[in-house]
Design a protein around this nucleic acid. Structure first.
Lengths: 127, 127
DNA sequence: GTCGTTGCAAAGATTTTGCATTACC
DNA sequence: GGTAATGCAAAATCTTTGCAACGAC
């Protein structure tokens, strides 16, 4: 039976309120505001526990470390900003990807990652 | 000026004849048939040099290490087999991904990775 | 009090770098 | 012969694990 520690509560709150997928390091940086002594190993363990418990899902990207976001979100894809390295959720899905498969291949799942500049960075002249 | 060493020639031959993107470890395993003493560091350096020289491109996937394939291939996407861990090239592209972007976001590039079982593994009963 | 959780540090795994030696041009 | 490239091993980065101490229930 899992316990409600200050560390895990802080980690969960950070993820639920982020509005976008976070990397373990981003989770650590944000959660340390609540729990100063928090260690990165605890973050990894809490993320792993969250996935096991079902409320958290990993977001595998083509760039950088795995991010994590709440599992209650419906099917969607992701955008990574080349300037600030943040990842954002996108709505919609092109669908009909089976037509890309060679004969005999079976499709289970798919990932789509768009790259570019987020609204914040697109309006920044120098960045 | 770069030199034509047996190591780099073996590495390049392996990649050009593979027909699918290879990981550094796959390149090492295959190229060691030609150059027995080949080391992994040499593979990484040769791959990096190939990207710099323009004939090689990295394939970033949502799972596992970066793969590499020849740069002369036209726009395409990838399929990773969950059973044998190999990656295959796919033809086609859904296109019209801009409609997924939130307001103010700028699209530079995109990756699509399909997951499932390749033709070889789909017909294997137990695998 | 029990036992899941934590924080530190050490260990893995993957990729990069330092350096003396090798070998292409 | 000059110098890019190699191979080994050490380092760097990211993630996992061991273990003694802590603290939720």
């Amino acid at each position: 039976m899992s316990r409600n520690t200050a560390q895990r509560e802080a980690i969960r709150t950070v993820i639920e309120s982020a509005g976008r997928p976070l990397s373990p390091q981003e989770v650590l940086d944000a959660a340390q505001a609540d729990v100063p002594g928090l260690g990165i190993a605890t973050v990894y363990r809490a993320l792993s526990a969250g996935v096991d418990e079902g409320w958290l899902q990993p977001v595998e990207l083509t760039t950088g470390p795995t991010r994590y976001e709440p599992a209650h979100l419906s099917h969607h894809h992701h955008f990574r900003c080349n300037a600030c390295d943040r990842v954002f959720d996108l709505e919609g899905c092109p669908g009909n990807l089976k037509k890309m498969l060679p004969p005999g291949f079976e499709l289970d799942d798919h990932d789509i990652v768009l790259h570019g500049r987020c609204a914040d960075c697109a309006t920044t002249p120098g960045g």
